[in-house]
Nucleic acid binder design. Structure first.
Length: 415
DNA sequence: TGTCCACTGGAAGGGAGGGCTT
DNA sequence: AAGCCCTCCCTTCCAGTGGACA
Protein backbone atom coordinates (compact mmCIF):
# COMPACT_ATOMS: atom_id res chain seq x y z
CA UNK A 1 0.00 0.00 0.00
CA UNK A 2 1.21 3.46 -0.90
CA UNK A 3 2.25 5.61 2.04
CA UNK A 4 0.03 8.61 2.42
CA UNK A 5 1.54 11.96 1.57
CA UNK A 6 1.81 14.16 4.65
CA UNK A 7 -0.56 16.74 3.18
CA UNK A 8 -3.27 14.39 2.00
CA UNK A 9 -5.07 13.97 5.28
CA UNK A 10 -5.23 17.72 5.72
CA UNK A 11 -6.29 18.30 2.14
CA UNK A 12 -9.17 15.88 2.48
CA UNK A 13 -10.47 17.77 5.43
CA UNK A 14 -12.97 20.35 4.41
CA UNK A 15 -12.30 23.97 5.12
CA UNK A 16 -14.87 25.98 7.01
CA UNK A 17 -13.81 29.25 5.44
CA UNK A 18 -15.01 30.76 2.24
CA UNK A 19 -12.62 32.40 -0.18
CA UNK A 20 -12.37 35.60 1.80
CA UNK A 21 -10.73 34.54 5.01
CA UNK A 22 -8.93 37.90 5.26
CA UNK A 23 -12.17 39.40 6.52
CA UNK A 24 -11.31 37.89 9.89
CA UNK A 25 -7.85 39.45 10.00
CA UNK A 26 -7.22 42.78 11.73
CA UNK A 27 -6.06 44.77 8.71
CA UNK A 28 -9.07 43.90 6.58
CA UNK A 29 -11.07 46.96 5.66
CA UNK A 30 -14.71 46.07 5.01
CA UNK A 31 -17.10 48.04 2.80
CA UNK A 32 -19.40 48.58 5.71
CA UNK A 33 -18.49 49.46 9.28
CA UNK A 34 -21.46 48.82 11.55
CA UNK A 35 -22.13 51.36 14.34
CA UNK A 36 -19.60 53.86 13.11
CA UNK A 37 -21.80 55.72 10.65
CA UNK A 38 -21.79 58.88 12.74
CA UNK A 39 -18.06 58.98 13.16
CA UNK A 40 -17.50 58.39 9.46
CA UNK A 41 -19.89 61.14 8.57
CA UNK A 42 -18.32 63.55 11.01
CA UNK A 43 -14.86 62.88 9.62
CA UNK A 44 -16.08 63.23 6.05
CA UNK A 45 -17.72 66.51 6.96
CA UNK A 46 -14.41 67.87 8.21
CA UNK A 47 -12.27 66.49 5.41
CA UNK A 48 -14.50 67.50 2.52
CA UNK A 49 -12.80 70.89 2.71
CA UNK A 50 -9.75 69.25 1.22
CA UNK A 51 -11.65 68.30 -1.91
CA UNK A 52 -12.57 71.95 -2.29
CA UNK A 53 -8.87 72.76 -2.25
CA UNK A 54 -8.69 74.15 1.27
CA UNK A 55 -6.94 72.87 4.35
CA UNK A 56 -9.21 70.90 6.70
CA UNK A 57 -8.93 71.38 10.46
CA UNK A 58 -6.50 69.25 12.38
CA UNK A 59 -8.25 66.42 14.16
CA UNK A 60 -7.58 64.42 17.24
CA UNK A 61 -9.29 61.07 17.62
CA UNK A 62 -9.52 59.29 20.95
CA UNK A 63 -10.69 55.83 21.82
CA UNK A 64 -9.57 52.56 23.37
CA UNK A 65 -8.04 49.82 21.25
CA UNK A 66 -10.43 48.03 18.95
CA UNK A 67 -13.04 50.78 18.85
CA UNK A 68 -12.68 51.18 15.12
CA UNK A 69 -10.53 54.33 15.03
CA UNK A 70 -8.04 53.01 12.54
CA UNK A 71 -10.71 51.31 10.46
CA UNK A 72 -12.78 54.49 10.23
CA UNK A 73 -9.80 56.61 9.32
CA UNK A 74 -8.64 54.18 6.65
CA UNK A 75 -12.19 53.82 5.39
CA UNK A 76 -12.58 57.56 4.99
CA UNK A 77 -9.17 57.73 3.33
CA UNK A 78 -10.24 55.16 0.78
CA UNK A 79 -13.47 57.03 0.08
CA UNK A 80 -11.53 60.26 -0.29
CA UNK A 81 -9.32 58.63 -2.88
CA UNK A 82 -12.34 57.28 -4.71
CA UNK A 83 -14.00 60.67 -4.67
CA UNK A 84 -10.94 62.15 -6.31
CA UNK A 85 -11.02 59.49 -9.01
CA UNK A 86 -14.65 60.26 -9.71
CA UNK A 87 -13.99 63.98 -10.07
CA UNK A 88 -10.74 63.34 -11.87
CA UNK A 89 -8.78 65.63 -9.55
CA UNK A 90 -5.72 64.70 -7.58
CA UNK A 91 -4.93 67.48 -5.19
CA UNK A 92 -5.26 65.62 -1.92
CA UNK A 93 -2.79 63.12 -0.51
CA UNK A 94 -3.88 61.02 2.42
CA UNK A 95 -0.92 59.53 4.21
CA UNK A 96 -1.27 56.97 6.94
CA UNK A 97 1.63 56.55 9.35
CA UNK A 98 1.55 54.10 12.23
CA UNK A 99 3.62 55.53 15.04
CA UNK A 100 3.98 52.20 16.72
CA UNK A 101 6.81 51.46 14.28
CA UNK A 102 7.49 54.94 12.93
CA UNK A 103 8.18 56.40 16.34
CA UNK A 104 10.82 59.09 16.00
CA UNK A 105 10.68 62.62 14.54
CA UNK A 106 13.20 61.56 11.96
CA UNK A 107 11.32 58.53 10.75
CA UNK A 108 8.02 60.39 10.55
CA UNK A 109 9.52 63.07 8.36
CA UNK A 110 11.43 60.49 6.35
CA UNK A 111 8.22 58.57 5.66
CA UNK A 112 6.47 61.73 4.66
CA UNK A 113 9.28 62.87 2.42
CA UNK A 114 9.59 59.60 0.59
CA UNK A 115 5.92 59.75 -0.21
CA UNK A 116 6.44 62.74 -2.46
CA UNK A 117 9.33 61.35 -4.38
CA UNK A 118 10.02 61.97 -8.05
CA UNK A 119 12.20 59.61 -9.99
CA UNK A 120 15.09 62.10 -10.04
CA UNK A 121 14.89 62.65 -6.29
CA UNK A 122 17.05 60.65 -4.00
CA UNK A 123 15.37 58.73 -1.22
CA UNK A 124 15.76 60.03 2.30
CA UNK A 125 17.74 57.29 4.06
CA UNK A 126 16.28 55.82 7.22
CA UNK A 127 19.06 57.35 9.24
CA UNK A 128 22.01 59.62 8.68
CA UNK A 129 20.73 63.00 7.61
CA UNK A 130 20.57 65.88 10.05
CA UNK A 131 16.98 66.47 11.11
CA UNK A 132 16.80 69.99 9.70
CA UNK A 133 17.90 68.75 6.31
CA UNK A 134 15.17 66.12 6.34
CA UNK A 135 12.70 68.80 7.37
CA UNK A 136 13.65 71.19 4.60
CA UNK A 137 13.68 68.41 2.01
CA UNK A 138 10.20 67.33 3.03
CA UNK A 139 8.98 70.91 2.96
CA UNK A 140 10.43 71.50 -0.47
CA UNK A 141 8.96 68.33 -1.92
CA UNK A 142 5.47 68.81 -0.56
CA UNK A 143 5.44 72.48 -1.46
CA UNK A 144 6.49 71.86 -5.03
CA UNK A 145 3.76 69.26 -5.37
CA UNK A 146 1.12 71.84 -4.46
CA UNK A 147 -1.96 70.35 -2.83
CA UNK A 148 -3.51 69.33 0.44
CA UNK A 149 -1.70 66.74 2.51
CA UNK A 150 -3.55 64.91 5.25
CA UNK A 151 -1.19 63.07 7.56
CA UNK A 152 -2.70 60.43 9.79
CA UNK A 153 -0.57 59.65 12.82
CA UNK A 154 -1.97 56.47 14.29
CA UNK A 155 -0.99 55.79 17.91
CA UNK A 156 0.38 59.31 18.11
CA UNK A 157 0.44 59.01 21.92
CA UNK A 158 3.24 56.45 21.58
CA UNK A 159 5.21 58.86 19.43
CA UNK A 160 4.81 61.72 21.88
CA UNK A 161 5.55 59.54 24.90
CA UNK A 162 8.76 58.46 23.26
CA UNK A 163 10.03 61.50 21.42
CA UNK A 164 8.06 64.43 22.81
CA UNK A 165 5.86 66.79 20.85
CA UNK A 166 8.61 68.38 18.75
CA UNK A 167 7.55 66.45 15.70
CA UNK A 168 3.95 67.64 16.00
CA UNK A 169 5.20 71.17 16.32
CA UNK A 170 7.31 70.70 13.21
CA UNK A 171 4.39 69.34 11.23
CA UNK A 172 2.27 72.32 12.23
CA UNK A 173 5.18 74.56 11.32
CA UNK A 174 5.51 72.82 7.98
CA UNK A 175 1.96 73.83 7.18
CA UNK A 176 2.53 77.50 7.88
CA UNK A 177 5.84 77.68 6.06
CA UNK A 178 4.68 76.30 2.72
CA UNK A 179 3.46 78.49 -0.09
CA UNK A 180 1.69 76.10 -2.45
CA UNK A 181 0.66 73.23 -0.22
CA UNK A 182 -1.18 72.84 3.05
CA UNK A 183 -0.91 70.10 5.61
CA UNK A 184 -3.43 68.77 8.12
CA UNK A 185 -2.77 66.31 10.89
CA UNK A 186 -5.12 63.63 12.12
CA UNK A 187 -3.82 62.20 15.38
CA UNK A 188 -5.19 58.94 16.70
CA UNK A 189 -4.64 58.12 20.35
CA UNK A 190 -5.61 55.39 22.78
CA UNK A 191 -4.77 57.58 25.71
CA UNK A 192 -7.26 60.16 26.86
CA UNK A 193 -4.71 61.94 28.98
CA UNK A 194 -2.28 62.16 26.12
CA UNK A 195 -2.81 65.87 25.43
CA UNK A 196 -1.43 66.68 28.88
CA UNK A 197 1.97 65.91 27.47
CA UNK A 198 1.60 68.51 24.75
CA UNK A 199 2.78 72.06 24.69
CA UNK A 200 -0.34 74.28 24.95
CA UNK A 201 0.29 75.82 21.51
CA UNK A 202 0.58 72.42 19.89
CA UNK A 203 -2.42 71.14 21.80
CA UNK A 204 -4.77 73.91 20.77
CA UNK A 205 -3.83 73.65 17.13
CA UNK A 206 -3.90 69.87 16.99
CA UNK A 207 -7.26 69.63 18.68
CA UNK A 208 -9.22 71.98 16.45
CA UNK A 209 -11.62 69.09 16.05
CA UNK A 210 -12.02 66.18 18.44
CA UNK A 211 -13.67 62.85 17.86
CA UNK A 212 -14.23 60.37 20.63
CA UNK A 213 -14.86 56.70 19.91
CA UNK A 214 -16.60 54.83 22.67
CA UNK A 215 -16.13 51.08 23.08
CA UNK A 216 -18.56 48.75 21.35
CA UNK A 217 -21.08 46.94 23.52
CA UNK A 218 -21.80 43.24 23.12
CA UNK A 219 -24.70 43.78 20.70
CA UNK A 220 -22.66 46.03 18.46
CA UNK A 221 -19.83 43.53 18.48
CA UNK A 222 -22.31 40.86 17.40
CA UNK A 223 -23.27 42.94 14.39
CA UNK A 224 -19.65 43.44 13.46
CA UNK A 225 -18.89 39.75 13.78
CA UNK A 226 -21.95 38.82 11.80
CA UNK A 227 -20.82 41.03 8.91
CA UNK A 228 -17.43 39.37 8.86
CA UNK A 229 -18.82 35.87 9.18
CA UNK A 230 -20.99 36.42 6.13
CA UNK A 231 -17.90 37.24 4.11
CA UNK A 232 -15.39 34.79 5.50
CA UNK A 233 -17.07 31.64 6.75
CA UNK A 234 -19.27 29.08 5.03
CA UNK A 235 -22.98 29.26 5.76
CA UNK A 236 -24.21 27.39 8.81
CA UNK A 237 -20.78 26.96 10.35
CA UNK A 238 -21.04 29.73 12.90
CA UNK A 239 -24.32 30.08 14.78
CA UNK A 240 -25.71 33.21 16.32
CA UNK A 241 -24.94 31.65 19.69
CA UNK A 242 -21.23 31.35 18.98
CA UNK A 243 -21.14 34.93 17.79
CA UNK A 244 -22.79 35.99 21.04
CA UNK A 245 -20.16 34.15 23.03
CA UNK A 246 -17.31 35.84 21.19
CA UNK A 247 -18.99 39.21 21.53
CA UNK A 248 -19.62 38.69 25.23
CA UNK A 249 -16.01 37.79 25.91
CA UNK A 250 -14.70 40.74 23.94
CA UNK A 251 -17.20 43.11 25.54
CA UNK A 252 -15.87 42.12 28.94
CA UNK A 253 -12.41 43.05 27.71
CA UNK A 254 -13.44 46.69 27.07
CA UNK A 255 -15.32 46.12 23.80
CA UNK A 256 -12.31 45.50 21.62
CA UNK A 257 -13.57 44.57 18.15
CA UNK A 258 -10.16 43.45 17.00
CA UNK A 259 -10.02 40.91 19.79
CA UNK A 260 -13.54 39.73 19.03
CA UNK A 261 -12.71 39.10 15.40
CA UNK A 262 -9.46 37.36 16.21
CA UNK A 263 -11.23 35.20 18.76
CA UNK A 264 -13.77 34.12 16.22
CA UNK A 265 -11.18 33.37 13.56
CA UNK A 266 -9.13 31.19 15.86
CA UNK A 267 -12.26 29.42 17.07
CA UNK A 268 -13.10 28.56 13.47
CA UNK A 269 -9.55 27.37 12.88
CA UNK A 270 -9.74 25.21 15.99
CA UNK A 271 -12.98 23.63 14.82
CA UNK A 272 -11.55 23.10 11.36
CA UNK A 273 -8.46 21.39 12.67
CA UNK A 274 -10.64 19.12 14.74
CA UNK A 275 -12.57 18.12 11.65
CA UNK A 276 -15.78 19.54 13.05
CA UNK A 277 -18.38 20.94 10.68
CA UNK A 278 -19.65 23.57 13.07
CA UNK A 279 -18.04 25.91 15.52
CA UNK A 280 -19.18 25.46 19.10
CA UNK A 281 -18.81 27.58 22.21
CA UNK A 282 -16.15 25.13 23.34
CA UNK A 283 -13.95 26.20 20.43
CA UNK A 284 -14.31 29.83 21.41
CA UNK A 285 -13.01 29.13 24.89
CA UNK A 286 -10.17 27.07 23.48
CA UNK A 287 -9.35 29.98 21.20
CA UNK A 288 -9.42 32.38 24.12
CA UNK A 289 -6.85 30.31 25.97
CA UNK A 290 -4.68 29.96 22.92
CA UNK A 291 -4.61 33.69 22.27
CA UNK A 292 -3.72 34.46 25.86
CA UNK A 293 -0.95 31.88 25.90
CA UNK A 294 0.46 33.00 22.55
CA UNK A 295 0.58 36.58 23.74
CA UNK A 296 2.44 35.68 26.88
CA UNK A 297 4.85 33.42 25.03
CA UNK A 298 5.62 36.13 22.50
CA UNK A 299 6.06 38.77 25.17
CA UNK A 300 8.50 36.63 27.16
CA UNK A 301 10.46 35.39 24.18
CA UNK A 302 11.14 38.86 22.86
CA UNK A 303 12.24 40.24 26.21
CA UNK A 304 15.79 41.60 26.46
CA UNK A 305 18.15 39.16 28.11
CA UNK A 306 18.45 41.07 31.38
CA UNK A 307 14.68 41.30 31.67
CA UNK A 308 14.54 37.55 31.27
CA UNK A 309 16.99 37.19 34.12
CA UNK A 310 14.81 39.36 36.31
CA UNK A 311 11.76 37.37 35.38
CA UNK A 312 13.64 34.18 36.17
CA UNK A 313 14.58 35.65 39.53
CA UNK A 314 10.94 36.31 40.31
CA UNK A 315 9.87 32.88 39.05
CA UNK A 316 12.51 30.99 41.04
CA UNK A 317 11.48 32.76 44.22
CA UNK A 318 7.82 32.22 43.50
CA UNK A 319 8.57 28.52 43.23
CA UNK A 320 9.85 28.32 46.80
CA UNK A 321 6.95 30.29 48.18
CA UNK A 322 8.51 33.74 48.21
CA UNK A 323 5.81 35.29 46.10
CA UNK A 324 6.60 38.93 46.87
CA UNK A 325 9.98 40.55 46.35
CA UNK A 326 11.29 44.08 46.66
CA UNK A 327 13.50 45.73 44.06
CA UNK A 328 16.54 45.33 46.30
CA UNK A 329 15.94 41.62 46.84
CA UNK A 330 15.46 41.08 43.14
CA UNK A 331 18.60 43.01 42.39
CA UNK A 332 20.76 40.90 44.69
CA UNK A 333 19.63 37.64 43.19
CA UNK A 334 19.66 39.01 39.68
CA UNK A 335 23.27 40.09 40.14
CA UNK A 336 24.24 36.56 41.11
CA UNK A 337 22.30 35.04 38.25
CA UNK A 338 23.82 37.27 35.63
CA UNK A 339 27.36 36.69 36.88
CA UNK A 340 26.58 32.99 36.81
CA UNK A 341 25.52 33.42 33.19
CA UNK A 342 28.77 35.21 32.44
CA UNK A 343 27.23 38.67 32.09
CA UNK A 344 27.99 41.97 33.73
CA UNK A 345 24.97 42.99 35.80
CA UNK A 346 23.23 46.26 34.94
CA UNK A 347 22.74 48.94 37.57
CA UNK A 348 19.85 48.90 39.98
CA UNK A 349 18.46 52.04 38.38
CA UNK A 350 18.19 50.25 35.06
CA UNK A 351 16.68 47.16 36.68
CA UNK A 352 14.06 49.37 38.25
CA UNK A 353 13.06 50.49 34.74
CA UNK A 354 13.06 46.94 33.37
CA UNK A 355 10.78 45.87 36.22
CA UNK A 356 8.38 48.67 35.35
CA UNK A 357 8.43 47.63 31.70
CA UNK A 358 7.51 44.05 32.54
CA UNK A 359 4.78 45.34 34.81
CA UNK A 360 3.32 47.19 31.83
CA UNK A 361 3.52 44.02 29.78
CA UNK A 362 1.52 42.25 32.46
CA UNK A 363 4.16 39.61 33.11
CA UNK A 364 4.63 40.74 36.70
CA UNK A 365 2.73 42.98 39.08
CA UNK A 366 4.80 45.76 40.60
CA UNK A 367 3.40 48.18 43.13
CA UNK A 368 5.24 50.91 44.96
CA UNK A 369 4.81 50.36 48.66
CA UNK A 370 6.16 52.16 51.66
CA UNK A 371 7.46 50.18 54.62
CA UNK A 372 7.75 53.30 56.70
CA UNK A 373 11.02 53.28 58.57
CA UNK A 374 12.15 50.46 56.35
CA UNK A 375 11.97 52.45 53.16
CA UNK A 376 9.87 52.66 50.08
CA UNK A 377 10.21 50.31 47.16
CA UNK A 378 8.36 48.31 44.53
CA UNK A 379 6.82 45.04 45.62
CA UNK A 380 6.91 42.59 42.75
CA UNK A 381 5.04 39.36 42.16
CA UNK A 382 4.66 37.03 39.20
CA UNK A 383 1.45 37.60 37.24
CA UNK A 384 1.46 34.20 35.52
CA UNK A 385 1.84 30.52 36.41
CA UNK A 386 5.46 29.83 37.41
CA UNK A 387 5.86 26.66 35.37
CA UNK A 388 4.69 28.27 32.14
CA UNK A 389 7.01 31.21 32.64
CA UNK A 390 9.99 29.01 33.40
CA UNK A 391 9.38 26.77 30.41
CA UNK A 392 9.25 29.69 28.04
CA UNK A 393 12.30 31.31 29.63
CA UNK A 394 14.35 28.14 29.25
CA UNK A 395 13.79 28.24 25.51
CA UNK A 396 16.45 30.94 25.57
CA UNK A 397 19.90 29.38 25.23
CA UNK A 398 21.59 31.56 27.79
CA UNK A 399 18.82 31.22 30.33
CA UNK A 400 18.80 27.49 29.77
CA UNK A 401 22.34 27.41 31.14
CA UNK A 402 20.82 28.39 34.49
CA UNK A 403 18.42 25.48 34.54
CA UNK A 404 19.91 23.92 37.65
CA UNK A 405 19.90 27.06 39.72
CA UNK A 406 17.62 26.94 42.74
CA UNK A 407 16.72 29.57 45.26
CA UNK A 408 16.12 28.80 48.92
CA UNK A 409 13.77 30.55 51.27
CA UNK A 410 16.80 32.45 52.60
CA UNK A 411 17.38 34.06 49.19
CA UNK A 412 20.54 32.02 48.61
CA UNK A 413 21.31 30.67 45.20
CA UNK A 414 22.13 27.01 44.77
CA UNK A 415 23.70 25.42 41.76
C1' DT B 1 6.55 65.57 65.46
C1' DG B 2 10.54 64.69 63.09
C1' DT B 3 13.62 61.23 61.33
C1' DC B 4 15.18 58.24 58.16
C1' DC B 5 15.03 54.06 55.23
C1' DA B 6 15.20 52.08 50.50
C1' DC B 7 14.16 53.09 47.19
C1' DT B 8 11.60 55.91 42.95
C1' DG B 9 11.90 58.26 38.89
C1' DG B 10 13.67 62.55 36.49
C1' DA B 11 17.71 64.56 34.10
C1' DA B 12 21.82 64.49 31.78
C1' DG B 13 25.06 62.44 29.34
C1' DG B 14 28.26 58.62 27.46
C1' DG B 15 29.12 55.63 23.87
C1' DA B 16 28.00 52.05 20.51
C1' DG B 17 25.71 51.35 16.19
C1' DG B 18 23.40 52.69 12.30
C1' DG B 19 24.27 55.68 8.29
C1' DC B 20 25.37 59.89 5.67
C1' DT B 21 28.74 63.79 3.88
C1' DT B 22 32.94 65.60 2.48
C1' DA C 1 38.94 58.13 6.34
C1' DA C 2 37.27 61.52 9.28
C1' DG C 3 33.51 63.91 10.83
C1' DC C 4 28.85 64.44 11.25
C1' DC C 5 23.81 63.12 12.93
C1' DC C 6 20.15 60.34 15.25
C1' DT C 7 18.68 56.57 18.17
C1' DC C 8 19.08 53.14 21.70
C1' DC C 9 20.62 51.34 25.89
C1' DC C 10 22.69 52.29 29.86
C1' DT C 11 25.10 54.78 33.79
C1' DT C 12 25.58 58.42 37.11
C1' DC C 13 23.71 61.63 40.06
C1' DC C 14 20.24 63.14 42.92
C1' DA C 15 16.08 65.34 44.84
C1' DG C 16 11.89 63.49 46.50
C1' DT C 17 8.81 60.48 49.31
C1' DG C 18 5.18 57.39 52.27
C1' DG C 19 4.86 56.00 56.44
C1' DA C 20 6.71 53.14 60.74
C1' DC C 21 9.12 54.22 64.49
C1' DA C 22 11.31 56.89 68.39
Amino acid sequence: MRAENIFERHLRRETLFKGNREALYPDYLPDYLPHREEEIDRLAEILVTALRGEKPSNILIYGKTGTGKTAVVRFVGRELRRAQEVYGKKNVEYIYINCETVDTPYSVLQNLGNYFIEEWDEKIPFTGWPLDKVFSTVKERIDSWGGIVIVVLDEVDKLVAKSGDDILYQLLLLDTEMKNSRLSVIGISNELKFTDLLDPRVRSRLTQEKLIFSPYNAYQLEDILEERVKIAVKDGVVDREVISTCAAIAAQEHGDARRAIELLRIAVEMAEREGATKVEDRHVYLAKNKIEMDCVREAIKTLPLHSKLILLTVALNDEVGRTQLTTGEIYDIYKNLSRRAGLTPLTQRRISDLISEMDMLGLINAKVKSFGRYGRTKVVELALPTIEVKNILFEDEIIEGLKNVKVTAQKKLFF
